[in-house]
Write a protein that binds this DNA or RNA. Structure first.
Lengths: 194, 194
DNA sequence: AGTAAATATTAAACTAGATTAACATCATTT
DNA sequence: AAATGATGTTAATCTAGTTTAATATTTACT
């Protein structure tokens, strides 16, 4: 089944019965996206929580001066959405774009509450997922203040080697909060000292 | 009842019956802290999710070079904990300290799962709280990359005037990710241009 | 009230990282 | 294989924010 990777993932947090899995399968949407396609655009309302089966997405904000700031990437087994827009159903602050051919499973706003009521274990599952996302986000704040750009890059490369290899360098720079020129300088420096 | 502010707060998300409220009251702990007291120390395991009834706390990390980085403040009706340490029951990355005489309600790790099972509405409540915390945290990341130190301070002062007035300036600087000297410079500049 | 401790200010010298702009390389299409 | 667009590099100049260190001010304690 197309959604098997999702079921496997869920099973590491809570165990669903077969009927529950079938019910879940009937409520979510599997969808393929091409490289470059948008899942969400800044200003639109975020209608889905997306689980990435394959490929890679970036969530980014474009500020008043036109600069792009990448908040997160998502590869297989990661979740992505503009949570603020989703929970309040108001216009999104972020864009979510596929930076590679991707397969996603989408939980729409209209069904997710229903899923929570019918299968309380799913509410538990999402609570745990979001707890983990919060932890990651807070750690990123501390890193952005306590580490130099070079150390932030080293941390990124070490934690997410797959993403580092997959995506263009200027996106890594945006994620790290530095310019592409400066990241280029850092990488050169790392080469000569290693 | 001491925990009334918590019950009021919860009621804005989910509605509990009287029995549920009584049960909840029997499971949580009300505690007063003095200015300067620690609720959690980096390296210890975080045993509680804390709801602030009055006063003010700061959560901060001390990095390898001894520098303090404030991740968040919490005043009345806010929550604080090292979520990463709490959910995995491993040593905390952060300290949580009262920067003013404070009253807290503490949900211990040992009872919170029990509360979730007995009162599923509480699991829903916490899911929603954590969703909001995640949204706030992601927005802070974007601000830290897209705004200048001055604009970050203006945003902070505008969003949290109470905290800005309550706490020493060097803590605001730490929260903003700048030095106290530079914040002093910014404030002077703001005075002359207003 | 007087003293110590904590907090805030100022200014000079310094640096991590930004900006600009020109050039180089790589990938994709025709 | 030439051409186009996307990505990456280099180097010079610039600036937001740091560092250091000395001084001022406020707060809290006896």
């Amino acid at each position: 089944m197309e959604i098997q990777p999702l079921l496997n993932y869920i099973s590491t947090y809570v165990s669903l019965t077969e009927e529950e899995e079938t019910f879940l399968a009937s409520k979510v949407t599997y969808r393929k996206y091409l490289k470059g396609q948008y899942i969400l655009q800044q200003g639109d309302v975020c209608k889905h929580q997306c689980f990435v089966i394959s490929g890679c997405t970036k969530m980014f904000h474009i500020d008043d001066s036109g600069q792009e700031h990448i908040v997160m990437f998502a590869i297989e087994n990661w979740w992505t959405s503009d949570m603020g827009s989703f929970i309040t159903q108001t216009p999104a602050d972020y864009n979510i774009q596929c930076i590679d051919k991707s397969e996603l499973i989408m939980f729409s706003y209209d069904v997710i509450e229903d899923l929570y009521s019918k299968i309380p274990k799913l509410e538990r599952f999402f609570r745990k997922i979001i707890e983990r996302a919060l932890v990651a986000s807070q750690k990123r704040i501390v890193r952005s203040f306590s580490l130099s750009a070079k150390d932030r890059y080293l941390y990124f490369r070490n934690q997410y080697p797959k993403i580092d290899k997959l995506i263009p360098q200027y996106m890594v720079a945006s994620y790290l909060g530095i310019t592409k020129e400066f990241l280029s300088k850092i990488k050169k420096q790392l080469l000569t000292e290693e």
